[in-house]
Design a protein around this nucleic acid. Structure first.
Lengths: 191, 191
DNA sequence: TTAACTATAGACCAACTTGTCTACTAAGGG
DNA sequence: CCCTTAGTAGACAAGTTGGTCTATAGTTAA
Protein backbone atom coordinates (compact mmCIF):
# COMPACT_ATOMS: atom_id res chain seq x y z
CA UNK A 1 0.00 0.00 0.00
CA UNK A 2 1.29 3.38 -1.10
CA UNK A 3 2.15 5.85 1.68
CA UNK A 4 0.16 8.62 0.05
CA UNK A 5 -2.85 6.39 -0.37
CA UNK A 6 -2.71 5.33 3.24
CA UNK A 7 -2.42 8.95 4.34
CA UNK A 8 -5.53 9.84 2.37
CA UNK A 9 -7.44 6.94 3.89
CA UNK A 10 -6.39 7.89 7.41
CA UNK A 11 -7.39 11.51 7.00
CA UNK A 12 -10.68 10.57 5.36
CA UNK A 13 -11.47 8.05 8.06
CA UNK A 14 -10.73 10.55 10.78
CA UNK A 15 -13.04 13.16 9.26
CA UNK A 16 -15.81 10.69 8.41
CA UNK A 17 -15.68 9.21 11.88
CA UNK A 18 -15.79 12.52 13.70
CA UNK A 19 -18.33 14.37 11.54
CA UNK A 20 -20.22 11.70 9.63
CA UNK A 21 -19.64 10.66 6.03
CA UNK A 22 -22.23 12.86 4.32
CA UNK A 23 -21.07 15.87 6.26
CA UNK A 24 -17.53 15.64 4.90
CA UNK A 25 -16.84 16.68 1.31
CA UNK A 26 -13.96 15.82 -0.98
CA UNK A 27 -12.66 19.37 -0.74
CA UNK A 28 -12.41 19.17 3.03
CA UNK A 29 -10.55 15.88 2.78
CA UNK A 30 -7.94 17.14 0.31
CA UNK A 31 -7.47 20.33 2.27
CA UNK A 32 -6.97 18.46 5.55
CA UNK A 33 -4.69 15.93 3.91
CA UNK A 34 -2.79 18.73 2.12
CA UNK A 35 -3.01 17.03 -1.24
CA UNK A 36 -4.30 17.95 -4.68
CA UNK A 37 -7.71 16.79 -5.83
CA UNK A 38 -6.14 14.95 -8.70
CA UNK A 39 -4.00 12.93 -6.30
CA UNK A 40 -7.08 11.72 -4.50
CA UNK A 41 -8.82 10.75 -7.72
CA UNK A 42 -5.60 9.11 -8.86
CA UNK A 43 -5.95 6.64 -5.99
CA UNK A 44 -9.72 6.34 -5.76
CA UNK A 45 -12.20 6.43 -8.61
CA UNK A 46 -14.89 7.99 -6.44
CA UNK A 47 -15.83 9.07 -2.94
CA UNK A 48 -17.70 5.79 -2.59
CA UNK A 49 -14.51 3.83 -3.14
CA UNK A 50 -12.76 5.97 -0.56
CA UNK A 51 -15.55 5.33 1.93
CA UNK A 52 -15.18 1.58 1.49
CA UNK A 53 -11.41 1.94 1.86
CA UNK A 54 -11.85 3.69 5.20
CA UNK A 55 -14.16 0.92 6.37
CA UNK A 56 -11.61 -1.75 5.41
CA UNK A 57 -8.83 0.27 7.02
CA UNK A 58 -10.72 0.60 10.27
CA UNK A 59 -11.76 -3.04 10.16
CA UNK A 60 -8.14 -4.15 9.99
CA UNK A 61 -7.02 -1.66 12.63
CA UNK A 62 -9.66 -2.72 15.12
CA UNK A 63 -9.20 -6.43 14.54
CA UNK A 64 -5.43 -6.26 14.83
CA UNK A 65 -5.69 -4.21 17.98
CA UNK A 66 -8.32 -6.48 19.49
CA UNK A 67 -6.36 -9.65 18.74
CA UNK A 68 -3.24 -8.11 20.23
CA UNK A 69 -5.05 -7.21 23.44
CA UNK A 70 -6.74 -10.58 23.77
CA UNK A 71 -3.49 -12.44 23.27
CA UNK A 72 -2.20 -10.86 26.45
CA UNK A 73 -4.97 -12.55 28.44
CA UNK A 74 -5.77 -16.19 29.08
CA UNK A 75 -7.92 -17.79 26.42
CA UNK A 76 -11.51 -17.96 27.59
CA UNK A 77 -13.14 -15.90 30.30
CA UNK A 78 -10.18 -13.60 30.93
CA UNK A 79 -9.94 -12.69 27.27
CA UNK A 80 -13.66 -11.90 27.19
CA UNK A 81 -13.24 -9.57 30.12
CA UNK A 82 -10.27 -8.02 28.36
CA UNK A 83 -12.56 -7.21 25.45
CA UNK A 84 -14.75 -5.09 27.69
CA UNK A 85 -11.68 -3.54 29.26
CA UNK A 86 -10.65 -2.51 25.79
CA UNK A 87 -14.06 -0.97 25.19
CA UNK A 88 -13.76 0.91 28.45
CA UNK A 89 -10.39 2.29 27.41
CA UNK A 90 -11.76 3.23 24.01
CA UNK A 91 -14.76 5.04 25.42
CA UNK A 92 -12.73 6.93 28.00
CA UNK A 93 -10.04 7.97 25.54
CA UNK A 94 -7.33 5.92 27.17
CA UNK A 95 -6.55 4.12 23.94
CA UNK A 96 -4.54 6.15 21.45
CA UNK A 97 -4.67 3.45 18.78
CA UNK A 98 -8.40 3.73 18.26
CA UNK A 99 -8.55 7.51 18.38
CA UNK A 100 -11.20 9.80 19.84
CA UNK A 101 -14.33 7.87 20.69
CA UNK A 102 -17.31 8.76 18.55
CA UNK A 103 -19.19 5.45 18.65
CA UNK A 104 -18.62 2.55 16.32
CA UNK A 105 -17.65 3.60 12.81
CA UNK A 106 -19.49 0.63 11.33
CA UNK A 107 -22.68 1.28 13.25
CA UNK A 108 -22.50 4.93 12.32
CA UNK A 109 -21.99 4.18 8.65
CA UNK A 110 -24.88 1.73 8.56
CA UNK A 111 -27.05 4.24 10.36
CA UNK A 112 -26.16 6.85 7.76
CA UNK A 113 -26.62 4.71 4.66
CA UNK A 114 -28.90 1.85 5.64
CA UNK A 115 -30.00 -0.30 2.76
CA UNK A 116 -29.20 2.38 0.20
CA UNK A 117 -25.52 1.40 -0.06
CA UNK A 118 -25.21 -2.35 -0.11
CA UNK A 119 -21.42 -2.40 -0.18
CA UNK A 120 -21.13 -0.27 2.93
CA UNK A 121 -23.68 -2.47 4.63
CA UNK A 122 -21.89 -5.71 3.66
CA UNK A 123 -18.51 -4.40 4.82
CA UNK A 124 -19.93 -3.41 8.20
CA UNK A 125 -21.67 -6.75 8.54
CA UNK A 126 -18.51 -8.71 7.86
CA UNK A 127 -16.58 -6.67 10.41
CA UNK A 128 -19.17 -7.51 13.05
CA UNK A 129 -19.05 -11.15 12.03
CA UNK A 130 -15.28 -11.23 12.49
CA UNK A 131 -15.56 -9.90 16.03
CA UNK A 132 -18.33 -12.35 16.80
CA UNK A 133 -16.05 -15.17 15.67
CA UNK A 134 -13.36 -14.04 18.07
CA UNK A 135 -15.84 -14.02 20.92
CA UNK A 136 -17.04 -17.44 19.82
CA UNK A 137 -13.51 -18.84 19.97
CA UNK A 138 -13.04 -17.79 23.56
CA UNK A 139 -16.38 -19.11 24.69
CA UNK A 140 -15.58 -22.43 23.03
CA UNK A 141 -12.65 -22.66 25.44
CA UNK A 142 -14.86 -23.29 28.44
CA UNK A 143 -18.43 -23.92 27.36
CA UNK A 144 -19.14 -27.15 25.50
CA UNK A 145 -22.92 -27.24 25.87
CA UNK A 146 -24.09 -25.96 22.43
CA UNK A 147 -27.13 -24.14 23.74
CA UNK A 148 -25.34 -22.36 26.57
CA UNK A 149 -22.47 -21.65 24.21
CA UNK A 150 -24.77 -20.00 21.71
CA UNK A 151 -26.54 -18.07 24.43
CA UNK A 152 -23.27 -16.67 25.73
CA UNK A 153 -22.06 -15.64 22.30
CA UNK A 154 -25.27 -13.83 21.51
CA UNK A 155 -25.49 -12.13 24.87
CA UNK A 156 -21.91 -10.92 24.82
CA UNK A 157 -22.39 -9.52 21.34
CA UNK A 158 -25.52 -7.72 22.48
CA UNK A 159 -23.72 -6.28 25.47
CA UNK A 160 -20.77 -5.18 23.37
CA UNK A 161 -23.09 -3.36 20.95
CA UNK A 162 -25.04 -1.90 23.83
CA UNK A 163 -21.93 -0.57 25.53
CA UNK A 164 -20.84 1.42 22.51
CA UNK A 165 -24.26 2.91 21.86
CA UNK A 166 -24.94 3.73 25.46
CA UNK A 167 -21.61 5.53 25.61
CA UNK A 168 -22.25 7.44 22.39
CA UNK A 169 -25.85 8.57 22.79
CA UNK A 170 -26.19 8.71 26.56
CA UNK A 171 -22.63 9.82 27.13
CA UNK A 172 -22.44 7.00 29.67
CA UNK A 173 -18.72 6.58 30.33
CA UNK A 174 -19.35 3.67 32.69
CA UNK A 175 -21.25 1.49 30.25
CA UNK A 176 -18.34 -0.89 29.71
CA UNK A 177 -18.00 -1.41 33.43
CA UNK A 178 -21.71 -2.13 33.72
CA UNK A 179 -21.33 -4.70 30.99
CA UNK A 180 -18.30 -6.19 32.69
CA UNK A 181 -20.36 -6.70 35.82
CA UNK A 182 -23.00 -8.45 33.79
CA UNK A 183 -20.45 -10.64 31.99
CA UNK A 184 -18.85 -11.65 35.28
CA UNK A 185 -22.29 -12.53 36.51
CA UNK A 186 -22.99 -14.65 33.45
CA UNK A 187 -19.67 -16.47 33.67
CA UNK A 188 -19.52 -16.75 37.45
CA UNK A 189 -20.00 -20.53 37.61
CA UNK A 190 -17.93 -21.29 34.54
CA UNK A 191 -14.42 -20.50 35.60
CA UNK B 1 -51.12 20.87 16.06
CA UNK B 2 -52.06 21.67 12.52
CA UNK B 3 -52.96 18.72 10.28
CA UNK B 4 -50.71 19.93 7.51
CA UNK B 5 -47.82 20.40 9.86
CA UNK B 6 -48.25 16.93 11.28
CA UNK B 7 -48.41 15.50 7.77
CA UNK B 8 -45.12 17.17 6.87
CA UNK B 9 -43.48 15.84 10.02
CA UNK B 10 -44.71 12.32 9.35
CA UNK B 11 -43.48 12.31 5.78
CA UNK B 12 -40.16 13.85 6.74
CA UNK B 13 -39.68 11.39 9.56
CA UNK B 14 -40.44 8.46 7.29
CA UNK B 15 -37.91 9.57 4.69
CA UNK B 16 -35.24 10.52 7.23
CA UNK B 17 -35.65 7.22 9.03
CA UNK B 18 -35.46 5.07 5.93
CA UNK B 19 -32.72 6.90 4.04
CA UNK B 20 -30.87 8.95 6.62
CA UNK B 21 -31.27 12.66 7.26
CA UNK B 22 -28.47 13.99 5.06
CA UNK B 23 -29.58 11.82 2.20
CA UNK B 24 -33.05 13.38 2.08
CA UNK B 25 -33.46 16.87 0.64
CA UNK B 26 -36.21 19.41 1.11
CA UNK B 27 -37.32 18.87 -2.48
CA UNK B 28 -37.83 15.18 -1.91
CA UNK B 29 -39.84 15.87 1.22
CA UNK B 30 -42.22 18.33 -0.42
CA UNK B 31 -42.64 16.08 -3.45
CA UNK B 32 -43.43 13.05 -1.28
CA UNK B 33 -45.75 15.06 0.93
CA UNK B 34 -47.39 16.68 -2.12
CA UNK B 35 -47.02 20.17 -0.76
CA UNK B 36 -45.47 23.39 -1.94
CA UNK B 37 -42.07 24.45 -0.71
CA UNK B 38 -43.55 27.60 0.74
CA UNK B 39 -45.94 25.54 2.84
CA UNK B 40 -43.05 23.71 4.42
CA UNK B 41 -41.19 26.92 5.16
CA UNK B 42 -44.41 28.38 6.47
CA UNK B 43 -44.39 25.79 9.23
CA UNK B 44 -40.65 25.39 9.79
CA UNK B 45 -38.00 28.06 9.56
CA UNK B 46 -35.36 25.58 8.42
CA UNK B 47 -34.57 21.96 7.73
CA UNK B 48 -32.91 21.81 11.13
CA UNK B 49 -36.16 22.76 12.83
CA UNK B 50 -37.96 20.07 10.84
CA UNK B 51 -35.37 17.51 11.91
CA UNK B 52 -35.92 18.35 15.56
CA UNK B 53 -39.68 18.17 15.01
CA UNK B 54 -39.36 14.63 13.63
CA UNK B 55 -37.28 13.62 16.64
CA UNK B 56 -39.89 14.99 19.04
CA UNK B 57 -42.67 13.36 17.03
CA UNK B 58 -40.94 9.98 17.13
CA UNK B 59 -40.12 10.38 20.80
CA UNK B 60 -43.77 10.86 21.66
CA UNK B 61 -44.92 8.06 19.37
CA UNK B 62 -42.51 5.54 20.83
CA UNK B 63 -43.11 6.52 24.44
CA UNK B 64 -46.88 6.43 24.06
CA UNK B 65 -46.71 3.07 22.34
CA UNK B 66 -44.31 1.65 24.90
CA UNK B 67 -46.37 2.82 27.86
CA UNK B 68 -49.51 1.36 26.28
CA UNK B 69 -47.84 -2.03 25.80
CA UNK B 70 -46.36 -2.11 29.28
CA UNK B 71 -49.67 -1.23 30.89
CA UNK B 72 -51.06 -4.49 29.55
CA UNK B 73 -48.51 -6.45 31.57
CA UNK B 74 -47.97 -6.75 35.31
CA UNK B 75 -45.75 -4.09 36.76
CA UNK B 76 -42.24 -5.43 37.25
CA UNK B 77 -40.68 -8.42 35.58
CA UNK B 78 -43.54 -9.10 33.16
CA UNK B 79 -43.49 -5.54 31.90
CA UNK B 80 -39.75 -5.74 31.35
CA UNK B 81 -40.20 -8.87 29.28
CA UNK B 82 -42.98 -7.11 27.39
CA UNK B 83 -40.47 -4.43 26.44
CA UNK B 84 -38.31 -6.99 24.69
CA UNK B 85 -41.40 -8.53 23.10
CA UNK B 86 -42.15 -5.12 21.69
CA UNK B 87 -38.63 -4.88 20.32
CA UNK B 88 -39.01 -8.30 18.74
CA UNK B 89 -42.25 -7.22 17.07
CA UNK B 90 -40.62 -4.00 15.89
CA UNK B 91 -37.60 -5.75 14.41
CA UNK B 92 -39.69 -8.38 12.66
CA UNK B 93 -42.19 -5.91 11.22
CA UNK B 94 -45.10 -7.17 13.26
CA UNK B 95 -45.78 -3.74 14.69
CA UNK B 96 -47.52 -1.36 12.32
CA UNK B 97 -47.39 1.56 14.75
CA UNK B 98 -43.61 1.84 14.64
CA UNK B 99 -43.26 1.32 10.90
CA UNK B 100 -40.59 -0.52 8.93
CA UNK B 101 -37.62 -1.32 11.13
CA UNK B 102 -34.46 0.56 10.23
CA UNK B 103 -32.77 0.69 13.61
CA UNK B 104 -33.36 3.32 16.24
CA UNK B 105 -34.05 6.76 14.81
CA UNK B 106 -32.28 8.42 17.72
CA UNK B 107 -29.18 6.29 17.46
CA UNK B 108 -29.10 6.85 13.72
CA UNK B 109 -29.44 10.60 14.09
CA UNK B 110 -26.68 10.77 16.67
CA UNK B 111 -24.49 8.60 14.49
CA UNK B 112 -25.08 10.98 11.59
CA UNK B 113 -24.55 14.25 13.45
CA UNK B 114 -22.51 13.46 16.52
CA UNK B 115 -21.33 16.49 18.43
CA UNK B 116 -21.84 18.78 15.44
CA UNK B 117 -25.53 19.33 16.20
CA UNK B 118 -26.05 19.79 19.89
CA UNK B 119 -29.82 20.09 19.70
CA UNK B 120 -30.18 16.78 17.87
CA UNK B 121 -27.88 15.18 20.39
CA UNK B 122 -29.76 16.55 23.39
CA UNK B 123 -33.13 15.46 22.03
CA UNK B 124 -31.86 11.93 21.46
CA UNK B 125 -30.35 11.83 24.90
CA UNK B 126 -33.56 12.88 26.61
CA UNK B 127 -35.52 10.25 24.70
CA UNK B 128 -33.15 7.56 25.96
CA UNK B 129 -33.40 8.95 29.45
CA UNK B 130 -37.19 8.70 29.36
CA UNK B 131 -37.05 5.03 28.40
CA UNK B 132 -34.48 4.37 31.07
CA UNK B 133 -36.82 5.89 33.62
CA UNK B 134 -39.59 3.55 32.57
CA UNK B 135 -37.29 0.57 32.98
CA UNK B 136 -36.22 1.95 36.34
CA UNK B 137 -39.84 2.13 37.53
CA UNK B 138 -40.46 -1.51 36.80
CA UNK B 139 -37.26 -2.70 38.42
CA UNK B 140 -38.16 -0.68 41.51
CA UNK B 141 -41.24 -2.88 41.79
CA UNK B 142 -39.25 -5.93 42.84
CA UNK B 143 -35.67 -4.98 43.58
CA UNK B 144 -35.02 -2.83 46.64
CA UNK B 145 -31.29 -3.42 46.98
CA UNK B 146 -29.83 -0.21 45.46
CA UNK B 147 -26.77 -1.87 43.97
CA UNK B 148 -28.65 -4.74 42.36
CA UNK B 149 -31.32 -2.31 41.25
CA UNK B 150 -28.80 -0.11 39.52
CA UNK B 151 -27.08 -3.10 37.99
CA UNK B 152 -30.34 -4.36 36.50
CA UNK B 153 -31.28 -0.98 35.07
CA UNK B 154 -27.92 -0.55 33.40
CA UNK B 155 -27.82 -4.07 32.05
CA UNK B 156 -31.32 -3.95 30.63
CA UNK B 157 -30.56 -0.66 28.92
CA UNK B 158 -27.40 -2.13 27.44
CA UNK B 159 -29.29 -5.16 26.19
CA UNK B 160 -32.05 -3.02 24.71
CA UNK B 161 -29.50 -0.92 22.81
CA UNK B 162 -27.65 -4.03 21.74
CA UNK B 163 -30.79 -5.68 20.41
CA UNK B 164 -31.59 -2.82 18.07
CA UNK B 165 -28.05 -2.50 16.74
CA UNK B 166 -27.53 -6.20 16.31
CA UNK B 167 -30.76 -6.35 14.34
CA UNK B 168 -29.83 -3.38 12.17
CA UNK B 169 -26.21 -4.09 11.30
CA UNK B 170 -26.09 -7.86 11.55
CA UNK B 171 -29.61 -8.36 10.28
CA UNK B 172 -30.12 -10.57 13.32
CA UNK B 173 -33.89 -11.00 13.58
CA UNK B 174 -33.57 -13.09 16.74
CA UNK B 175 -31.64 -10.55 18.78
CA UNK B 176 -34.64 -9.61 20.92
CA UNK B 177 -35.23 -13.24 21.78
CA UNK B 178 -31.59 -13.67 22.75
CA UNK B 179 -31.93 -10.67 25.03
CA UNK B 180 -35.14 -12.06 26.47
CA UNK B 181 -33.31 -15.24 27.41
CA UNK B 182 -30.66 -13.18 29.12
CA UNK B 183 -33.19 -11.04 30.96
CA UNK B 184 -35.06 -14.11 32.17
CA UNK B 185 -31.75 -15.43 33.39
CA UNK B 186 -30.99 -12.23 35.25
CA UNK B 187 -34.43 -12.07 36.87
CA UNK B 188 -34.81 -15.80 37.49
CA UNK B 189 -34.62 -15.63 41.27
CA UNK B 190 -36.50 -12.41 41.67
CA UNK B 191 -40.05 -13.32 40.70
C1' DT C 1 -68.41 41.34 -1.18
C1' DT C 2 -64.26 41.80 0.76
C1' DA C 3 -60.29 40.82 3.41
C1' DA C 4 -57.25 37.69 5.52
C1' DC C 5 -55.21 33.50 5.48
C1' DT C 6 -53.22 29.47 3.71
C1' DA C 7 -52.21 26.84 0.20
C1' DT C 8 -49.80 25.67 -4.72
C1' DA C 9 -46.36 25.70 -8.45
C1' DG C 10 -42.20 26.65 -9.53
C1' DA C 11 -38.62 30.21 -10.91
C1' DC C 12 -34.67 31.69 -8.88
C1' DC C 13 -30.34 32.31 -5.94
C1' DA C 14 -26.02 31.41 -3.81
C1' DA C 15 -23.45 27.97 -2.09
C1' DC C 16 -21.85 23.58 -2.24
C1' DT C 17 -21.34 18.76 -4.21
C1' DT C 18 -18.52 15.22 -6.90
C1' DG C 19 -15.65 14.71 -10.45
C1' DT C 20 -12.72 16.26 -14.80
C1' DC C 21 -9.22 18.69 -16.88
C1' DT C 22 -5.30 21.76 -17.93
C1' DA C 23 -0.86 23.50 -16.84
C1' DC C 24 2.93 23.04 -14.31
C1' DT C 25 6.64 20.99 -11.14
C1' DA C 26 9.75 17.64 -8.82
C1' DA C 27 12.03 13.16 -8.54
C1' DG C 28 14.17 9.12 -10.24
C1' DG C 29 15.88 5.71 -13.57
C1' DG C 30 17.71 4.29 -18.06
C1' DC D 1 19.57 14.38 -20.48
C1' DC D 2 15.27 12.89 -21.25
C1' DC D 3 11.20 10.56 -20.21
C1' DT D 4 7.98 8.76 -17.13
C1' DT D 5 5.59 9.00 -13.00
C1' DA D 6 3.35 11.18 -9.28
C1' DG D 7 2.55 15.09 -7.40
C1' DT D 8 0.31 20.39 -6.93
C1' DA D 9 -2.97 24.16 -7.72
C1' DG D 10 -7.02 25.27 -9.05
C1' DA D 11 -10.45 26.42 -12.88
C1' DC D 12 -14.37 24.35 -14.45
C1' DA D 13 -18.76 21.59 -15.41
C1' DA D 14 -23.04 19.76 -14.06
C1' DG D 15 -25.94 18.80 -10.66
C1' DT D 16 -27.92 19.36 -5.91
C1' DT D 17 -28.60 21.75 -1.71
C1' DG D 18 -31.40 24.85 1.49
C1' DG D 19 -33.97 28.71 1.21
C1' DT D 20 -36.55 33.04 -0.92
C1' DC D 21 -39.88 35.02 -3.65
C1' DT D 22 -43.57 35.99 -7.03
C1' DA D 23 -47.94 34.99 -8.89
C1' DT D 24 -52.02 32.66 -8.33
C1' DA D 25 -55.95 30.13 -6.27
C1' DG D 26 -59.15 28.36 -2.72
C1' DT D 27 -61.36 28.89 1.83
C1' DT D 28 -63.38 31.17 5.55
C1' DA D 29 -65.32 34.73 8.33
C1' DA D 30 -66.85 39.53 9.00
Amino acid sequence: MNNKKRHIIEVAFSLFYQKGIHAVGINEIIKTASIAKKTLYNHFVSKDELIIATLIYRDQLELTHLKFKLEQAEIGKDALLALFELLDDFINHRDTTLGNFRGDYFNNSCAEYGQSNQLVYATCQSHKEAIKNIIQTHINAFEQNPEKNQFLVNTLCLLKEGVINQALVQGDTNSALDATACVENLLRFKR
